[in-house]
């Protein structure tokens, strides 16, 4: 199988590292060669955070470049828009509807673009939007948005649900497992 590329984008602190680890575990269990690339340190402090997951028979570069992502999972609208150039033509974006103002918007230096999804439609982008924050709160914690989104992603990939649940068990601390399983189910059901 040719190498496939997934990008997970969001704002530092939203839990994209956990999402990429779950995804990595799932793909490894499927027998693929997997590479997951993270960014730590300064950019984690409320800045744009990007994680790459690549899999296939053979994976060389751990990074995803412009026009290469088969799937982009976004935790936030603006970050979905920022990541668009990385989407392969024919690829899909799954994005949370959450909006978080970046500092230049907070200080009033610029404004938050209002019609990102309309612009996606106009540009012919294949995308799915989900109110992951609300579903996560329904599951018991706003922090579980990442796992809600993994639930949505699982409906887009032909991998058994049990594999996803096993990966959850391996990646999530035991005391939060039930909450995260619920978040995952809500993600699966919403789409």
């Amino acid at each position: 199988m040719d190498t496939r590329s997934i990008m997970i984008v969001g704002v530092g602190g939203q839990g994209s590292l956990l999402a990429s680890r779950i995804l990595g575990h799932v793909l490894l269990m499927q027998g693929f060669e997997v590479k997951v690339s993270e960014v730590h340190g300064m950019s984690q402090r409320g800045g744009s955070v990007v994680t790459y997951v690549k899999y296939g028979d053979k994976v060389y570069s751990p990074v995803v470049e412009k026009g290469e992502a088969d799937l982009i999972v976004s935790f936030e609208q603006l970050e979905a828009a920022r990541s668009l150039p990385y989407l392969k033509k024919g690829g899909t974006i799954i994005t949370s509807t959450q909006k978080l103002d970046p500092m230049p918007v907070i200080t009033g230096a610029t404004t938050y673009p209002e019609d990102i999804f309309n612009q996606f439609r106009d540009a012919g982008v294949d995308f799915v939007s989900v109110n992951a924050l609300e579903l996560a709160e329904q599951a018991g914690s706003a922090k579980a948005s990442n796992v809600v989104l993994m639930g949505v992603v699982s409906t887009k990939m032909s991998i058994e649900k049990e594999v996803w649940l096993k990966a959850l068990e391996e990646c999530v601390p035991a005391k939060f497992l039930e909450l995260n399983k619920k978040a995952f189910e809500l993600g699966r059901e919403c789409y």
Binding site: G47, V63, E65, L78, L87, Q119
Partner: peptide, 30 residues
């Protein structure tokens, strides 16, 4: 990156979608 090497050696530039809106930067913050 792979795309820099592709561009410099093979002369191939990436092909991708964009939207017209300017995207505000999101620098790290306290």
């Amino acid at each position: 990156s792979q795309s820099i090497i592709r561009e410099k050696i093979k002369g191939i530039s990436p092909d991708y979608l964009t939207i017209p809106t300017e995207i505000p930067v999101r620098p790290p913050v306290m």
